[in-house]
C-alpha cells in the first residue's frame, strides 16, 4: 500500500514536472519569440447582443450620474453625495428598483467631461438611463477655490464662454444618445457668500447659472435645478471643512430638491 502510494506520487511528480516545464517554455515562446503582429487583440468582436439587452424591463429606474466632485460626493462623510440621498428619497416613493451608476470624477471640468462622454461605456450608460444627473462647471469657475483673486470680469467672461460652448455640446451629445431620458443639471451655489466680495462672487455665480439655464432650455427635457438659494443663508452650516464642497446636510438639501422633481406614474408609486 505504502509502496504503491509512493510510486504514484513519484509518477505524478515526474509528469507534473514535465507539464510545468512545458508551461515555462511556453512563456518564453509567447513573451519573447512569438510574432504577435498576426494575432492582435483587435480581432475581437464585442458581443453586441449582450449589450443591447439592458433597459428592456420596465421594473427598474436607471440613473446615470456624470460630472464632478459634487456628483461624486466629496465632503460627505458617508460618501453618498446628493445622489445617495436622492436615491433614498426615490426609494420611498417608488416600487421600481433603482439602478445607479456614478461615473463622476473629482475636479472634472467641462472639457474633461466632454472627453469622458466619448467613452463607449459611459455612452452605453447614458443610452440606457431613464434619468441623467449632471453637475459641471464648478471647477471651470472656481478652479478648486484657488482662483478667487482672479475674479476679474474679463477673465470670467472668457472662461464662461468656453464653459457654455462645452456645455451645449455635452447637452447635444447626451440628447443624441438618449432621446427620452430626462436630464437634471444641478446648478451652482456660491460657497463664498459669507466672505468679503460676496456681492461680486454671487453675481458671477448668478449669471453663470442664468446662462446655463438658458442653454438647458434650448433642448427638450433638460431641467436646470437651482441650488443657489439653498446655500444663500447659513452657507457655513452646509459646507464641508474645505469651505467649498457641501457637507452631509448640504448634500441632503440638494438630493431632496432633485428627488422632488422626479415623479412616477400611478402604477409605479408606492
Amino acid at each position: 500500500m505504502r509502496k504503491k502510494g509512493l510510486s504514484l506520487v513519484t509518477a505524478l511528480s515526474i509528469l507534473s514536472a514535465l507539464v510545468w516545464l512545458a508551461g515555462l517554455a511556453w512563456v518564453l515562446q509567447d513573451q519573447f519569440f512569438a510574432d504577435n503582429k498576426n494575432r492582435q487583440a483587435e480581432s475581437l468582436k464585442p458581443d453586441t447582443a449582450q449589450q443591447q439587452k439592458q433597459n428592456s424591463s420596465g421594473k427598474t429606474l436607471q440613473i446615470a450620474a456624470i460630472g464632478d466632485s459634487l456628483t461624486r460626493g466629496t465632503g460627505d462623510p458617508d460618501g453618498k453625495g446628493y445622489i445617495g440621498y436622492l436615491k433614498e428619497e426615490l426609494a420611498k416613493t417608488t416600487k421600481k428598483e433603482i439602478e445607479l451608476t456614478n461615473s463622476a470624477i473629482k475636479g472634472q471640468t467641462s472639457v474633461q467631461l466632454l472627453k469622458q462622454i466619448q467613452q463607449p461605456q459611459i455612452q452605453r450608460q447614458i443610452k440606457n438611463a431613464d434619468v441623467i444627473l449632471l453637475t459641471i462647471g464648478g471647477n471651470d469657475l472656481f478652479r478648486g477655490g484657488q482662483a478667487l483673486e482672479e475674479l476679474e470680469s474679463k477673465n470670467i467672461n472668457k472662461t464662461e464662454d468656453v464653459y457654455l460652448s462645452n456645455l451645449k455640446v455635452i447637452y447635444k451629445e447626451i440628447r443624441s444618445l438618449n432621446k427620452n431620458g430626462i436630464i437634471y443639471h444641478v446648478g451652482l451655489y456660491n460657497p463664498f457668500s459669507d466672505m468679503q466680495d460676496s456681492k461680486t462672487t454671487s453675481s458671477i455665480v448668478r449669471k453663470w447659472n442664468y446662462d446655463s439655464a438658458n442653454a438647458a432650455a434650448a433642448q427638450p427635457n433638460i431641467i436646470y435645478v437651482p441650488t443657489f438659494d439653498l446655500f444663500e443663508l447659513n452657507v457655513n452650516d452646509y459646507l464641508y471643512s474645505d469651505h467649498f464642497h457641501p457637507n452631509k446636510q448640504g448634500y441632503q438639501l440638494i438630493g431632496e430638491r432633485t428627488a422632488s422633481l422626479i415623479r412616477f406614474s400611478e402604477e409605479d408609486q408606492k
Partner: peptide, 15 residues
C-alpha cells in the same frame, strides 16, 4: 498585447 485562452494563461503562470 495579444489574446490567449485562459487555460494557456494558467499553464504559463504555473510554469
Amino acid at each position: 498585447v495579444h489574446l490567449i485562452p485562459q487555460w494557456q494563461y494558467i499553464l504559463m503562470e504555473f510554469g
